[in-house]
Amino acid sequence: MSHQLTLFTFPSTFYALKAEKAVQNAGLKAKLIPMPRELSSLCGLALELETGEEERALEILKAVKLEKKVRVVKEKGLIAKIVEVVEYEPG
């Protein structure tokens, strides 16, 4: 079964944890996962959520520094395909 997910990556652990707290406080289902190294090495974490919730999450994450947004397709828990990578301006 394949499944489309969005991963947000961050310039540091501080922002990853801040992002997790912000989206969870807003009632979104999101979790921090180890960041696949080929996608980013800035901090070891990515925030994973359903792609359907991406827009709401982006709204909430305005106050947080984002590095990238990566849409992936997961099959049996493994990344099968990278659909899209959006890089954000630093700062």
Partner: peptide, 9 residues
Amino acid sequence: YGGTGSQSE
């Protein structure tokens, strides 16, 4: 200066 758990490369 040292390890921060980020940008390790």
